[in-house]
Each structure stands twice: as C-alpha cells, then as structure tokens.
Design a binder for these strands. Structure first.
Lengths: 375, 375
DNA sequence: TGTGTTGCTGCAAAGGTTTGCAGCGAAATA
DNA sequence: TATTTCGCTGCAAACCTTTGCAGCAACACA
C-alpha cells in the first residue's frame, strides 16, 4: 500500500535515481522533470523510507533521549524543548525512561545506538568510565553532568546553591541542613560542595542528610531527621523533596517558614502553586534540552558515520567537545524567612536575584565562572 | 566500526544466513555452531541492525506516541507507562509533542508512519474523519477519545463528572459552573454532557464557560467569569485549570472552599500538594498507556505489513477493534464544602468514592457501563 | 546396495534508497 | 565541421538483514 520510490518512478516515467535526486539534490534534475515527479509523488502520497535511506547514508535522522524518570516534573519541559528543537531540524526522538537505574541506562544506549545519530544522556547515574566507553559506540551529549572529553550541558547549580546559602545566611540562619540527591548524581555532588563551602564561609553549621530518592516521599521521610538536626534552614536537592519535606514538617507541627526555612532547586511549575510558595533555585531546563540537541546536531552537514563517505565519525569529524554551563537564578518566595531567634518577616513580592554573570536572557548558553571548557 | 552480521560470519567461519538464524531461529542451527557464533558476536559487540531488519520483515519494532502537550502533568505518567510496557516487549518509542495543534498531529502521523508499526494518538484534537483516514496509513490506537471502528482507550470521565456533580449537589450547591476544555477534545464534550445531565437532574443551574486552554493560566483567567456567574461550585476540565482557578479566585478575594467549591479532573500528583488539597476525579493514566500499547501490539506474532508474508496488514490481520473504557474515581479532599448558605464543613480525611462498577484494582481495563464495544 | 529422512548450512533474492560513473543529446567553442 | 563542454538521466552497486530453496552429509531402513 505505501508508495515507494519505484511507484513514483513508474508513474512519472523516469528512473528511480531521478526520483531520488528530485528530493535529495533538486538542482541536478531538469525543472520540468522535477515538476512531473513531484506531482506524481504528491498524488501517490510518497514519503521516502527513512530506514532505507539510513541504511546507505549512515544517518538515521533520529536521536535518543534517555531520561532518569519521566514522571519527575523536572524533565518534561526538557523533553518537550528537546523534541521540538530536534523536529525543527527534521529529527525524530526516541524517549526512554531508566527509572534511575544505571544498568538500564547502559542497556538502552546499546539498544538505541544503531537506530540513532546520537543520544542525549539526561542526568545519568552510571559511572564516568561507562559513559566514556559508550561514547565510542555512539555520539553522546551529557546533560546535568560533566564528563571530561565529552560534550556536556550543565546548569550552574553550584552558583545557585551558593546564592541560596547566602540568602539563608543573610536571614540569620546558622544551622543549615542539606537534603542530598540520589547516589551517582553529579548535580548532587556539585550542590553539596558549593553549599558546604558557602555555609562554612558564613560561619554556619552544615549537615548533610542523604543520599535520598529525589521525590516528594523522599523529602517527607526526612522531616524527623531535620527536626533532630535542629537546623533552622534546609536546602533540598530539588523542589519535589523540598515540598515533601514541608509536608513532613507540617505533620510534625513545624511551620515553614516560621520555624524552618526551606529552599528547593529547579523551580518546577508546582513550586509556584504550593503554600507556602517555594523559594528555589531556577534551572533553565528547556534551554538545556534545546542546547543539547544543538550540540549533538551541530555537525549534521558532515557525512555521517556511514559507509560511502569518510569512515568513522570520530576520525575525520573533529567535533568540538564544548562544555556549556547555563546560568541559574535564585527565586525568593514564601518558604524562607528570618531565623526564629530574630523574629519573623515574610516577603510577599517575588524577588529574582540573578547570578553575578547573568547574560541577556535567563538560560542562554553562557561563559560563566569558568563553566565553558572548550577543548 | 559497528560490527555487522558479515563480520560475525567471517569471524566464526559460517555464512551470514547462519548468523542470522542463530538469532532469529536458534533451533535451526547446530548447538556447536551456535555457540561459536554467539561467542564471536559477543566478542565483536554485534547487535542486529533493526532498520535493515525492518526493511525486509516489515516490522520496525518501534511505535509512535503522539502527545498534545508533554509539559501538561497529565501526560508524563501515561508516557512513562507506555514506554515501559513497550520496551518490555522489545519495542522502542518515538515521542512527539503537537502543542495541541491538529495540523501538527496529522503531519506527525505521516512523518512517523514508515518508521513505526503503529501509533498511539493521545488526546487528539483533529477531526474523526482525519483520524479514520490516517488509520488507513498506519495502525492507530486512540487514547482519550472514541472513534467508531478504531481501537480506543478512554477513561470514564462521564461517570466521573456525574459523581462530582452529585457530590456537589449533596453539599447543597444549586448553581454549578463548568470550565470546559480545548476545542476538539472528546473528553471535554463527554464531561459537559454528563455533568449537564446530572446537574439538571438535581435541579441545579448549569453554566458552561469555554472552550479554554487546559492550563493553569487558562483556569486563572476564568476567575472573574466565575464570580459573575454567581456559581457556588465549579467543575474544571482538569486539575491544572482547577488550581489556576483557585489562585484566580484567591486574588479576587473569594476563598475555596468556603465561598466556592472547586472540583478538578485527573488527580495529577500536584493536586495532593496544593492548599487546599484538590477534590478531583482520578483518571488511571498509567493504566491507559499500558493498555493502549497492549492493544496496539496484541497481534505482533502475525506477520507485519511487510513484503514477503501476507501483503497488507489490514486484509489478513483481522485486528479486533475493541474499545476499552477505564474506571474513574472521585477523590474528595479539601476544595469542596457545603454551599455558603448552609454554613461550612471541611472534610479532613481523604475519601475515595469508587464508581459503581468498580473492579479489583483502580485502572484495570473493565467492562463498564456499556463502555466496551467490541466489533 | 539403494532409497528415503533428517539436520544443518549455503545461495541468492529481496526490501527501499543513495550515489559514483557512464552515456547521451544539444549547445558552445574552435 | 569537428571537438569539447554541459545538463540531464540511467545503470548498478551498496547498505544489512531475512528467508525460501536447494544441496549435502550422515544415517536409517528395506
């Protein structure tokens, strides 16, 4: 039923190669012939078979997007932006969910490798060495993690965490707890490092609780520990945990922000809707998705790793393995207030404190604080 | 670099067809030979090229999942479940976002058709006739909509809306407004119909506001209209709109549920986290995703629409076009209370009122109220 | 010994497309 | 007029698999 190139050739009285050229190299075919072919193709509803094309060109015009957990509200905006950007460049996107499982990640890259021109690895939980190894099998762009020698898109959560801690210090907090994220998360390590430095620099006590599941229940489960730690302020690995923690504290009779201040990270849509509205570090997720796709596809004029052309993409295609770091912003809402001893103040308006090196728009790729390492 | 079947054949000293059979029909090859081939394949890291295989078998082992808006929290659980179910059956999933645009939907089905064995059309906004036409090009399963003659998975939102209205009537409300959804939404029509019938049966005044964008801002924008309508209770097309409305009413000085009761539909994770917690009709999204995949793939032992075997899938593969409807449940939380004139009562505990034909677990496929129409 | 079976393997076509090369007619140049 | 160039088109190989068919050796049976 579906029309092939042969059907079009027959209908328009030319050889199949002419039909092929009509689509892939129009300037090589006589305008009159071209018109006829186009008309027949239109009539028959012909669409080139991309799989067959991929077989010979070596470029599938597909990319893979591997996600730690689709249901985590952090990811959908990223997926949406990546898919949109890819489609605009005539690429289709395989989406796969690993359930935060490093083994599944590896298996998925293998399974997808032959079917795609590249893979976006989003918040991978596997080891760096495994990532490097996989990158020899298929071009990779890593999101939310830095891996030496590979193109990466990260968000400056270190900077964000520092802003958050300084915000808390400014409110008089001197006992600060951190709810860390899942094991293997680069982001979590980064936050921990930066927050620790900033807290100690401000003369505050700094406790780390975790690692934890980066979910609402993960956060709620920590309420008791937070109380025992006697911290007056908490920075959470992400908004979901922050919100869960607030719920948990509520059950324990602790009010936010009166008794405890809580800061999240991500600024998912949800954090504007809870009560209290969440103070959080906004990360440019959609921009990250777009940027990653651009980095993966930046060399798509170069011949693929196909047969005919140059052999092996890694040899002749010296892809610039840039590492881009996107800016973050602290968004102050209602979940932070002065430390209990100092009385209360609840800011009502929404304040935005941009990072120090802020560029034109939020989330534009930027040469922040040594963030860009071109090699 | 990537090993082909030929490399494996050379390494193990057999013909490529033997290698092929080692994987696709192991019983046809001598155990000793098989072992040798397997070893070589392992060594070389050989994985069959699915595109090449698809070319001849006619089965791509891919499916497409077309979504109205990935960023709408209604969809991620469905996507996640569908992807998981598909992968378990060794299928990969293309995900694409249409931004609620019917034109994009059509274009996407065309673009994906040759690359997949079938498409899941999730909450399509295009016309029934267009859907029918597209279904001649590629097997389709429609989610959240009923189209005669096509396999469909729907949720019984009619039943849900009725429960919601009866709940509101029981609380004494006699002026009820409905915030309808986007133009072209089957779900929205269904809700409107059922809610209208139930409201009038209960002697209540029933106002419809819309169509609207099914988003938080869409809901917030309606606060003023709701106030003017003097309704004491509102049923929203989805939770997002309900939450937006609550925000909007808040700005207008109207309290929920004291002044106005609000009911949502979907029970997204978010609705447990807002204040007040949202009373809503829970829809089994993950189950819908799983079921749709199962329906699409139920005949995957039958030869594909490939070349060699029977020609044309529609002729010999008499796919049973079942229409499955999944049960919904009203979840009563804190956003509904007695109508103002009657004083106040805020239920504290979370109640679950199942539909009348409830089966074992929530979200299991079920033969509800005339919902299943096998043809 | 001759015939038939069984178990395994190789051969080659097919699937839909791209692309280097050759061919051909017409126009441009000498 | 003879030769070159140019613009266009056709030929056929190649990409990586699957699969019907044929071949072949070993064995069983009569």
């Amino acid at each position: 039923m579906p029309a092939t190139i042969r059907d079009v050739a027959r209908a328009s009285g030319v050889h199949i190669s002419t039909v092929s050229r009509t689509f892939s190299a129009p300037h090589l075919v006589n305008p009159e012939t071209r018109g006829r072919v186009l008309a027949c193709a239109e009539e028959l509803g012909y669409r080139p078979n991309r799989a067959a094309r991929a077989l010979i060109t070596g470029r599938t015009h597909n990319i893979g997007l591997i996600i730690a957990d689709i249901a985590n509200p952090f990811f959908p905006p990223l997926i949406k932006a990546a898919e949109s950007q890819a489609r605009q460049r005539d690429y289709h996107v395989f989406v796969a969910d690993t359930n935060e499982d490093p083994i599944a990640e590896e298996e998925l890259v293998h399974a997808l490798a032959k079917q795609v021109d590249g893979v976006l690895l989003c918040s991978p939980r596997m080891s760096n060495s495994m990532i490097e190894q996989l990158s020899r099998e298929v071009p990779l762009v890593v999101i939310n993690r830095q891996v030496a020698g590979l193109p990466c898109v990260t968000m400056d959560v270190g900077q964000g965490a520092r802003c958050a801690i300084e915000h808390l210090l400014g409110l008089g907090h001197r006992r600060i707890a951190l709810l860390s994220g899942p094991r293997g998360s680069w982001t979590s390590r980064e936050i921990r490092r930066a927050a620790g430095v900033a807290a100690r620099a401000g003369g505050a006590e700094f406790t780390v609780l975790g690692p934890n599941q980066p979910t609402e229940t993960g956060g709620a489960a920590l309420a008791e520990q937070v109380r025992r730690s006697e911290a007056t302020a908490v920075l959470a690995y992400n908004d979901l945990m922050a919100i869960g923690l607030i719920e948990g504290l509520d059950t324990l009779g602790l009010r936010v922000p009166q008794d405890v201040s809580v800061v999240g990270i991500d600024d998912i849509a949800l954090s504007r809707l809870t009560r209290p509205k969440l103070t959080t570090v906004a990360t440019p997720n959609a921009a990250a998705g777009r940027t990653a796709v651009d980095m993966l596809l930046q060399h798509d004029t170069v011949a693929g790793r196909g047969s005919r052309g140059g052999r092996g993409v890694t040899s002749d295609d010296r892809r610039t393995t840039a590492q881009v770091m996107l800016q973050t912003e602290l968004v102050i809402r209602d979940s932070t207030a002065a430390a209990p001893a100092d009385g209360r103040n609840r800011p009502d308006a929404e304040l935005v404190v941009p990072g120090p090196h802020r560029l034109a728009g939020p989330g534009r790729p930027t040469a922040a604080t040594g963030g860009v390492v071109a090699s």
